[in-house]
Amino acid sequence: MPNTGTTSPNTGNDGYYDRDEGLAIQDVTFRYGTNIVLQNLCLSITPGTFTVLLGSSGCGKTTLLRLIAGHLQPQHGSIHLAGRDLTHLPAEQRNIGMVYQNYALFPHLDARANVAFGLEMRRLPRSEITSRVEAILDRVGLPAEARGRKPEALSGGQQQRVALARALVIEPDLLLLDEPLAHLDRQLREQMRQELRTGITTLMVTHDPDDALALADQVGVMEAGRLVQWGAPREVYERPIHARVARLLGAVNLLPGGVLVRPERVRLVPGDQPVTQVQYRGSRALVQVAGILAEVDASTAPQVGQRVGLDIPEAACWHMPGEQE
């Protein structure tokens, strides 16, 4: 996993903005009526990296994408991309590719025409449009026989590929992905995940921790319009600042004093505590003993009622700085 993201203080990476390259969002506030959707948000993304913003619905992550794309205007703050100030630039001049949650493919155009749309807006010669469309459809792996079909005749995965191709073909400075995997089944999801890593600077929003941890160079966690944590996936997973972030990323054991132990770090040893629950998950199993969850190999999982002991190594405990006793 190419987790190369630099780690920085938990409150986000304010303080340093590289305005010549990448994406720099500085102190952006967006209000809808009296409702503050985003508050003093700062974020900067290194060119060529893949960033995932993780948050539950209503945390403002989709609003942030629409601000960056230019469909909304922030009341305060600035947005820079590749050295350009985008803050007041119309959406059609920003050169940002976006994949929508429902793909937003043009229903009256076939796959090729959907992909060609952005190139036609740029008034490129017909021959160049044709060759670039075919090349990008090759790259996202849309079968030749599907390229003449309208979106309604394409499968979910094919629609996703067309939406991605349409966003990539304009050679955007930034790729925005709004829950692009939400409508795909599990198998397709895992296959498409890697195809979303295109080498273009990418910002993806999702509520799915698996997508975030698997894809991201750096993860931002959003909560109620604020960026509450920022870092490499591993850091955010293992060292969340508080319990809400911890839960957003996976199963947790919360011990007194604001201590987090992930279930996979808990070991089962011989002992006399009864197992109260076993949740079978294929290769792994979640075992509950005395209110503590332990994730173990399914083949070695005990039965309910069986007596075991718990071993929680000191190294597995993380004192969450945002949790006070």
């Binding site: 794309a69 469909h71 059609e92 920003r94 590719g97 937003a104 043009f106 749309f117």
Partner: peptide, 22 residues
Amino acid sequence: DLALHEAARGLGASPWQIFWRV
């Protein structure tokens, strides 16, 4: 779908082009 208008704009379409093409 209003997202179609946004998508067209994001791809570089002016308001007139959005009207004629979408």
